[in-house]
């Protein structure tokens, strides 16, 4: 295995595209280093992208926020602007692993690792976030939901790197939230994860909603029926029940060491209802204060 730490995105892409053997991007390394020690073994080349200045930044863009590929969970959590606009995304990213993991793990890495249980991805999908992909043939923007194609599989072509994620601007009276179920209080992989983002009109009626559902299928799902259950309602008890039913119905889970089909299906609905209630409260009250109070 060779190690390279290029200074520019272009040289990183060139290294990645030019490697005849297997190559891996190293950002936070919290998934990659675990894989290096497993039976899967070592790639021929590891490209550390943390020396690329442009990837370290969180920048305001068109009323939204662009998050660089090497921004760690801890750095994201300390950024007041992103936390105020997208508290659900930030709390999802902050749920990835321990304090130690937060010091390294990145949201882009979480996306590109392509685990169906990735904590930040349901929240990113609910947020309609866009990944910026750079490769030998230039740069393209891709909906985050299109990056993963299956467990550990992505749509990225050879030589392509996700350089950043854009969280779009927020309309007024919007809120988002992410909840996951784990057996312990920390240090577990999500058994179910639900991200909800919604916007209300002045009268409190939901005008837009997106619901992302993790760990219940081969990829994180965007559940349109769940959003439809909320849109046009005041997000009352009946709407929440329909939301829960839609989420449970969308589940195509497996039985594994972390949970049963029955459990995941039921809890997806329970968490969707709870997450929507939090998102609603944030939309009604102004999210930055809401998030601080919950902490």
């Amino acid at each position: 295995m060779r190690y390279e730490a290029p200074r520019t995105l272009e040289s990183a892409v060139a290294l990645l595209a030019g490697e005849p053997g297997s190559a891996q991007i190293l950002a936070g390394g919290t998934d990659l280093l675990v894989r290096l020690k497993s039976d899967i073994g070592e790639p021929d080349l590891v490209i550390d992208i943390k020396r690329i200045e442009a990837m370290k930044a969180i920048t305001a863009e068109d009323g939204g926020w662009r998050i660089g590929a090497t921004v760690s969970g801890a750095e994201l959590g300390e950024h007041d602007g992103v936390g105020a606009a997208w508290p659900g995304v930030v709390e999802a990213a902050e749920l990835i692993g321990s304090t130690q993991i937060q010091g390294r793990a990145t949201m882009v890495g979480n996306l590109c690792n392509a685990s169906p249980a990735a904590d930040s991805v349901p929240a990113l999908i609910a947020a309609e976030a866009v990944a910026r992909v750079t490769g030998p043939d230039g740069t393209r923007d891709v909906a985050v939901g299109e990056i993963a194609t299956g467990p550990g599989q992505t749509s990225l072509a050879k030589g392509e790197i996700v350089a950043s994620i854009l969280l779009p601007a927020r309309p007024a009276r919007s809120g988002d939230a992410y909840l996951r179920f784990i057996p312990r209080t920390e240090m577990d992989i999500a058994v179910v994860g639900v991200g909800v983002s919604l916007t209300l009109d002045a009268s409190g009626i939901c005008t837009a909603a997106r619901v992302g559902l993790g760990a219940v299928a081969a990829t994180v799902l965007l559940v349109e029926a769940a959003a439809a259950a909320l849109i046009g309602t005041a997000i009352d008890e009946a709407a929440l029940e329909r939301l829960a039913a839609a989420c449970s119905a969308a589940c195509k889970p497996i039985d594994d060491k972390r949970g049963t089909i029955e459990f995941r299906t039921k809890v997806a609905g329970v968490l969707a209802r709870r997450a929507a209630a939090i998102a609603l409260a944030r939309a009604l009250s102004g999210h930055s204060t809401a998030r601080k109070a919950e902490k």
Partner: peptide, 14 residues
């Protein structure tokens, strides 16, 4: 930053 040193490559700490 607090990290697990088992998840950092030696080469990274230059």
């Amino acid at each position: 930053r607090l990290v697990c040193s088992c998840l950092v490559l030696g080469a990274e700490v230059e």
